[in-house]
Design a protein around this nucleic acid. Structure first.
Lengths: 159, 159
DNA sequence: ATGCTTGCAAAACGTTTGCACAGGG
DNA sequence: CCCTGTGCAAACGTTTTGCAAGCAT
């Protein structure tokens, strides 16, 4: 769901990145191109550390600092989206041309299910109006048990 | 909304804390009582650092470590609730006997509005069923502009 | 050339932990 | 008494930053 298996999408993402950087007076360097390529290799969600490892293991050597400086750029230009599954670290997912969605996490097996957020957007607008608020973004994260885990043992033990 | 202005509630909270600790084979020490007293002095949301300062400034000296070890106890026994307004630190609010609610934050002035989460709970159940998930908890955080800020200048600049 | 970018290492940050001592039940 | 709680300082893990050197335009 996150990975841009479609090669055209990869090209579009690269073009979007170049465009974004140019429009912001920032350079499209080889290092940044390398980082973009690498994050596009992930299928699902990933964290900064995984990018660091992926780049270290392949030939390409990019410093940790640069990766931490580049990921926010990719988020700002809409290629990536930052997701928070826990409070310990940032996770990212491919967002370019993807439909907005939220996440539901099984607290026992860790499975992540994505769901469209249309209804959530409608609800947030309703709540916003009620409190004289112009809501522009939300974060809706569900936690519970997936069907497999709940049939195995309905008692929640967490982990 | 967060503060237990009602003295009876304070007493109930203390009783609940004692009960909880006893039932878990944990001691009700003077230090823990002091920490409970101090968190009950806050009106709205607060962070661990504020508890540390409050205790330092008044006579009572409690170490940072103990505060960090006690706050989770107060959350587990239902007196406090942990809230996450950002990814940097944990915030807490009084939860004992309060109706569950979620938060809406103005991204310009930081104002926090609480709203009841009945509809949110209904929606989360609906979404859960649709994806064969037994949802047990959620986190719904809204961000935008409060009425005052949006009338002052509708352009979002963030801070 | 100019000034943004990079890498390195060190700092920052909230939070956690190891340990020896203190204290509750 | 025993076992848990406490304080201190040091460790923690992710992320940020200061600085000198490197590169794009």
């Amino acid at each position: 769901m996150t990975s841009p298996t479609n090669p055209t999408k990869v090209d579009e993402a690269q073009a979007a990145f170049r465009r974004y950087l140019r429009n912001h007076g920032v350079k499209y360097t080889r290092t940044r191109a390398v980082i973009l390529d690498s994050v596009l290799e992930f299928r699902d969600h990933f964290e900064a550390e995984q990018v660091i490892h992926l780049l270290r293991e392949s030939d390409r050597k990019v410093s940790k600092a640069t990766i931490y400086r580049t990921l926010p750029l990719l988020v700002e230009c809409g290629i990536l989206k930052e997701v928070r599954f826990d409070e310990k670290r940032a996770y990212y997912e491919f967002a370019f041309g993807e439909a907005p969605h939220d996440h539901m996490v099984c607290r026992r097996c860790g499975r992540i299910v994505e769901f469209a957020s249309d209804e959530v957007v409608a609800l947030r607008a309703k709540i916003g109006q009620r409190h004289h608020f112009h809501v522009t973004s939300h974060r809706f994260q569900l936690s519970g048990l997936c069907w497999e885990c709940s049939t195995k043992c309905p008692v929640v033990t967490m982990g």
